[in-house]
Design a protein around this nucleic acid. Structure first.
Length: 573
DNA sequence: GCCGTTTTCGGCCCGACTGTTTTCAGTCG
């Protein structure tokens, strides 16, 4: 079930889209779009708010405030219904086609009666766009390709997949002499959970040569656009990659610009304007004289705007600029602050590596502690038994001598059954150093059942961490239906940590849920759920997700010293 | 429609690229 805020955001965004199609005024749609985003990112639930509180939301004034109340009450608002009556819903769908915006969409509808993407596809095939003013042969071809791309792509890729492509391109282009600096930016640098386009930034004095090399790289299927400063290509896998080349002394300003997010950039550019300055990808300038102030690195640019450097993972216009201004921007968790991994597997169950191999690989990360948490018996396919588990514990204790700097913790990943009970009784569970408990079955329970189930598991004094709390698999499986507010309250009350699972297709809890849970005083465990030695490095995605949820080392139990962690694991007993 | 270190009107981020035009609108990020 979507949160009320999400419903309201969707309504405002749809209204903004319809306005952009039906009116000339470019500012009004933008207002609704901004208000929608503010509402979506607002921490409090709109359902319980009165008008005065609603008007405190940034970018929400009297007019939009009234409409928000209407949506909370009825699920929609009158003005939206009026616009919906004017054009078919499919026209809005057409502006999702790359290269086709609101202005062309309305011409297609008004002049040819084209009402959705399918109509448009037929019209293009039949050559009916030919006599339309403003639509030439190339536009027609671009629309044809845009429709194709929309139907096949639409699917954003996991951050880990984009990261691999970025590494490959950076390695090849970065080895060129005329490439002084190269880095990925965009949503990958912000470590969003999925990536639409890959953005690469290069510092070079020979832009044309670098872009030629890029455009003829082996991964390139087709060149989408190529100019003096920017080239866009489509890879064979269907991913768009944008390359921007700037002079080296503009690196910092360009990185800010290219990293985004777009709303974050707009916020800081507006700040610049108010200070009589102008910010673009070439630097921060005095508005009147055009004199350059700074450009070379990000810290300087932020500093001149009166801001501390803001980590890319927090640049989402979720209040980070305001927090930075008042000096309350949290010190985001860093990879270095992670002292151990509390959720990992071996080949005793479904892992690929032996206990010895996992420990050896983990010790390379310099961890102070490390937990082995193989699956418990009720996940029957794993064929776990009490004997096997106890034998593993013996083995772990023996291997401890080989790791003087890393305390080995013996744990397990329990299964939360339909009623919220777990595999073993208290006596057996007492033998573990740490217990993660997760849902692995009955994903389709009702919201009430699922919520009761997880809360019951958290009330078990031997359950320390709830693993991948919503169970979603990105692009594959929906999250389970949960009353998250109840779950977060119970986690705080029982002293149970919620996992931030760093496995790239889980990232569970996700950033927005973390922000929400954190306000309830919940503690978190940032883990990899590794099933192979190579998975241990997924901690980078877990930490990035934690940063996107504004977590600090104080919020994260595996960033604590072992003694403090052990106190937490006693759950107040 | 929102907002205020140019405060209750008059702005609203900024630049690159494309395509169809003859100087610019549309789209994108």
């Amino acid at each position: 079930m979507p949160r009320t805020n999400d419903t309201v955001e969707a309504a405002l965004t749809e209204y903004a889209d319809l306005l952009s199609i039906l009116t000339e005024d470019p500012y009004k749609p933008r207002s609704y779009e901004k208000a929608g985003r503010s509402v979506g990112g607002y921490p409090d639930d709109l359902a319980g708010m009165d008008r005065k509180q609603i008007l405190k939301i940034p970018n929400v004034g009297a007019s939009i405030g009234e409409k928000i109340e209407e949506v909370v009450r009825t699920g929609t608002f009158e003005a939206l219904e009026e616009l919906r009556a004017q054009i078919p819903p499919g026209v809005r769908g057409m502006i999702a086609i790359p290269g086709l915006g609101p202005k062309k969409a309305i011409v297609l509808y008004r002049d040819l009666g084209i009402a959705d993407v399918e109509d448009l596809r037929r019209a293009v095939d039949e050559g009916r766009l030919a006599d339309l003013k403003g639509f030439g042969a190339k536009t027609e071809e671009n629309i044809r390709r845009g429709i194709e791309r929309l139907s096949q792509s639409g699917q954003r890729v996991l951050a880990s997949v984009a990261m691999d492509l970025a590494s490959e391109l950076i390695e090849r282009l970065g080895s060129r002499r005329d490439v002084r600096k190269i880095a990925y930016a965009g949503s990958l640098r912000r470590m969003a959970e999925t990536i639409g386009d890959l953005d690469l930034l290069v510092a070079s004095d020979r832009a044309a040569a670098v872009m030629d090399a890029f455009a003829s790289d082996r991964v390139v299927e087709r060149i989408v656009a190529k100019g003096e400063a920017k080239t866009s290509v489509l890879t064979r896998q269907g991913m768009q990659v944008d390359l921007r080349v700037v002079p080296r002394d503009a690196w910092g300003a360009a990185m800010i610009y290219f990293t985004g997010s777009k709303p974050h950039n707009i916020r800081i550019r507006e700040m610049a304007v108010r200070k009589g300055l102008k910010l673009n990808e070439y630097g921060l300038f005095k508005a009147k004289s055009g004199d350059l102030i700074v450009a070379e690195n990000e810290e300087e640019v932020y500093a001149q705007l009166g801001l501390p450097w803001i980590p890319p993972t927090m640049r989402e216009d979720r209040g980070e600029v305001e927090a930075a201004l008042e000096g309350s921007l949290p010190d985001a968790l860093t990879r270095k602050q992670i002292r151990g991994d509390l959720h990992t597997h071996t080949n005793l169950t479904d892992g690929l590596a032996t206990l010895e191999q996992m420990l050896e690989a983990a010790s390379a990360f310099g961890y102070a502690y490390y937990a082995v948490t193989d699956h418990a018996p009720n996940l029957f396919m794993q064929r776990m038994t009490d004997e096997k588990m106890l034998a593993q514990r013996e083995q772990v204790r023996k291997l401890q001598d080989g790791y003087p700097k890393m305390t080995l913790l013996h744990g397990t990943e329990l299964n939360i059954d339909g009623e919220g009970n777990v595999d073993w009784d208290a006596e057996f569970l007492d033998g573990f150093d740490v217990c993660v408990a997760s849902v692995h079955s009955l994903f389709n329970q009702s919201k009430d059942e699922m919520t009761r189930r997880i809360v019951h598991a958290m009330e078990n004094p031997n359950v320390h961490v709830i693993g991948h709390p919503t169970g979603r698999i990105i692009n594959k499986r929906e999250p389970v239906d949960l009353d998250l507010d109840e779950v977060f309250k119970a986690a705080a009350r029982t002293g149970t940590a919620l996992e931030v699972n760093g496995y790239p297709d889980r990232l569970d809890l996700k950033d927005e849920h973390i922000l929400w849970a954190r306000r309830h005083g919940v503690k978190f465990s940032v883990d990899t759920d590794s099933h192979a030695t190579t998975h241990l490095d997924h901690m980078r995605f877990g930490v990035a997700t934690a940063q996107r949820g504004w977590l600090t080392k104080d919020d994260v139990i595996n960033a604590w010293p072992l003694s403090k962690l052990k106190t937490f694991l006693r759950k107040g007993r």
